[in-house]
Structures are given as structure tokens and as C-alpha cells.
């Protein structure tokens, strides 16, 4: 009888010791492919450069900009308060603290959409939420915010408002003098963005 108990005890210890030997489980809580598919097909992950510009200007504390370009490019030019996490380093443990912060909206950007979108998919797979992609990337940023094109005279009031906003934002980011805006329109806070505004996208 005692021999059986000894056998059982050794078996139990071996089983428990086995737990110590198996490789560590993945720390990431991966989401299901179906869920990922659904998320990818939604366009709600995109934010426009105008939205990002406005959040920066307003000093939105929930905005966390992440520049996924290589460090060299980041040093040459980056958006205000952006953090540099090159795409190939995204999964390094050092950077995980930046991604899972509660109440923070992470916005990825690169030169264009593509790299940022890849970063988005990887982060999504790692189980992070509240992550977004800046649509059009820095190319779109330059084209729209830094060098805004004045709309034609036949354009709608909304387009003019947006143009005014961009001019103001341009001044904010580049430090150039802004032209005096039209009467009744004040520089930066003009645009009250509505959902589905046609002019918002387009890069």
C-alpha cells in the first residue's frame, strides 16, 4: 500500500515539475481570425490627418501617436509628441507598455498607410484595442496640412471651413504667419467635424 502511495506522490511531483519545463505560454491574447477579419473590413480604424491635427492642436490627452518608420526617418521629421516604434520592433517587450494603456487612443502613422496598417494588424492580433491608423500617412499630412490647396470658388462652405482649419493648423505646425481669416471665422477651431463629411478623406 505504501509503495502505491510513493508511486502516486512521485507521479504528481513529476507532473507538476513538467509545468516548470514547458516553454512559457504566449503572453499575447490572440484574437480569433473571424474577429480580425471583421475588424479589418471595417474602416473605423482610420482617422484622417485633419482629425489628428485637431487633436494635437487641442492637446488631446488621450492621443498617443506612434511613428512606425525607422529611427533615422523619425529623427528627420515627426509629428508633435509622437513616439518612435519601428515596425520591426513592435513586438519587443520594451514597447508593450506603450500599447495597452487604458483610455489612450493609439494612432499609428508611417509615410503612407501600408506600414501603419500592418502595425495595426499585428497589434490587433496581440489583443490591443483602441488602436487606429492615420489615413494617408505623412505624405497625406504634408499635402493637406502643410501645403493645403485653396478650394475653388464654387466649392461648398464646408470645404472652405476645412481649408481655413488646415491653414491654421499649418501655421500651428510650421510657425508661418497665417492670413487673417474671413470675418466671423476664427482660425483654428473653425471646423466642427461631422461624420461622413465628403471632404474628409481622399488621399
Amino acid at each position: 500500500m505504501n509503495k502505491n502511495y510513493l508511486f502516486l506522490a512521485i507521479l504528481m511531483i513529476l507532473l507538476a515539475a513538467g509545468l516548470l519545463l514547458v516553454p512559457e505560454r504566449q503572453n499575447y491574447q490572440q484574437i480569433k481570425p473571424e474577429k480580425l477579419m471583421w475588424d479589418i473590413t471595417q474602416t473605423s480604424r482610420f482617422v484622417t490627418v485633419d482629425q489628428v491635427a485637431q487633436m494635437i492642436i487641442e492637446g488631446d490627452p488621450t492621443l498617443e501617436l506612434i511613428d512606425i518608420r525607422p529611427a533615422k526617418d523619425f529623427e528627420a521629421f515627426s509629428l508633435t509628441n509622437a513616439i518612435n516604434i519601428p515596425l520591426d520592433s513592435l513586438m519587443k517587450p520594451d514597447y508593450q507598455d506603450y500599447l495597452g494603456i487604458e483610455d489612450m487612443n493609439v494612432v499609428f502613422y508611417g509615410n503612407s498607410d501600408i506600414k501603419a496598417d500592418q502595425a495595426w494588424v499585428i497589434s490587433k492580433r496581440m489583443g490591443y484595442n483602441s488602436i487606429y491608423v492615420m489615413q494617408g500617412g505623412l505624405n497625406c499630412w504634408i499635402r493637406k496640412i502643410i501645403q493645403p490647396v485653396e478650394p475653388e470658388e464654387s466649392a461648398s462652405q464646408e470645404e472652405f471651413d476645412l481649408y481655413q482649419f488646415r491653414k491654421g493648423a499649418c501655421a500651428f505646425f510650421t510657425g508661418t504667419k497665417v492670413e487673417a481669416p474671413d470675418a466671423g471665422k476664427t482660425g483654428i477651431k473653425v471646423v466642427k467635424r461631422k461624420k461622413g463629411t465628403a471632404v474628409a478623406g481622399g488621399c
Binding site: Y5, A9, I13, L15, A16, A17, L19, L20, V22, E24
Partner: peptide, 18 residues
Amino acid sequence: ISNEWIAFLFVVVAIVAF
């Protein structure tokens, strides 16, 4: 410490207690 170690310690303590 990892929960695997905790489980291992529990097993050892339990068997000694038995």
C-alpha cells in the same frame, strides 16, 4: 513568481503534509 512554480510548491507541500 510564475503560477507554475506556485503549483509545484503546492504539490511538494501537500505531499510532505500527507
